[in-house]
């Protein structure tokens, strides 16, 4: 019993310490933000890696997500609801929820793991210490470009994914559900709200920052060689996926109860 309580206490202490360290990292990112012009080139490299590098994955994921959304919607309508609403359901669910969250989870897995593994390897091979020893701020040089690239590219990739998912839904509707293209598009237009696009973008902006932050945080915390690098990558992916789902709920509450109410 005593052991259980003390291990619970140690766990809580560790969690609080981690939160504190994460907060320190956020403060340091904010402090070096004015130096962004100095790291434009590094940021562009990261943007290419996150955006262009994730495209094949995003194309497949979003295309099939849209298709599945259309097929599932038609199945649930069961001739009670007119076919044109398939377009409405696919459009709104993709823009508000499926596009940002699935892109966040899929790209987050890929990008978060790669950031954590790269920074983790640099940490255990003293490359980060070498930067610091040369009076180069590792937060500015390594963390800032990744953070900014994540905040920009995840929304950009999400827009791309939204378009592809809606197109995937169109192909499924026309190809396998026997709907006409006009019916799908008219349904899509019927309930279209610009605020849906905005809410999706705000979500993906937050997800992008969460993914990059978790990757950087766990990468910089790495210790203990190859095993440590593996652990950091896992922690980065797991924590960013959890935080995406949790923040998705909080954002949904916030955006639709307050901002777009």
């Amino acid at each position: 019993m005593r052991e259980a309580v003390s291990s619970l206490g140690r766990g809580a202490m560790r969690a609080i310490a981690e939160l504190g360290e994460l907060a320190i990292l956020v403060v340091r990112i904010i402090k070096v933000l004015p130096q962004l012009p100095r790291t434009v080139r590094l940021t562009v490299v990261q943007m290419m890696e996150m955006g262009v590098g994730s495209l094949p994955l995003v194309i497949v994921t979003s295309f099939f997500t849209g298709g599945v959304a259309a097929v599932q919607a038609a199945y649930q309508f069961q001739n009670w609801i007119p076919d044109r609403f398939v377009g409405s359901v696919v459009g709104r669910s993709v823009l508000i929820e499926l596009g940002p969250v699935l892109t966040g989870l899929v790209v987050g897995g890929r990008v978060g793991a790669s950031i954590a593994a790269e920074l983790g390897t640099m940490k255990v091979t003293e490359q980060i210490d070498a930067l610091e020893a040369m009076a180069i701020d590792s937060t500015r040089y390594l963390v800032l470009p990744r953070f900014v690239a994540g905040a920009i590219m995840i929304p950009v990739v999400t827009i791309f994914a939204d378009g592809l998912a809606i197109f995937g839904g169109y192909l499924a509707a026309v190809g396998s559900l026997g709907m006409s293209g006009e019916t799908y598009v008219s349904g899509l237009r019927l309930f279209f709200e610009t605020s849906d696009v905005w809410s999706g973008m705000i979500k993906s902006l937050v997800f992008g920052m969460v993914i990059a932050l978790m990757g950087c945080y766990y990468g910089l915390q790495t210790s203990g060689g190859a095993e440590g690098v593996g652990k950091s990558a896992t922690h980065a992916v797991v924590s960013s996926c959890l935080l995406i789902l949790i923040s998705d709920y909080i954002l949904a509450e916030f955006l639709f109860s307050w901002i777009f109410a």
Binding site: T125, E126, A130, A133, M134
Partner: peptide, 19 residues
């Protein structure tokens, strides 16, 4: 501290070259 570090050169044990 960064200003002071500019006075130093540091050769790391495992070289720590940026790969």
């Amino acid at each position: 501290l960064y200003e002071v570090r500019k006075k130093f050169g540091f050769l790391f044990q495992a070289s720590a070259l940026f790969d």
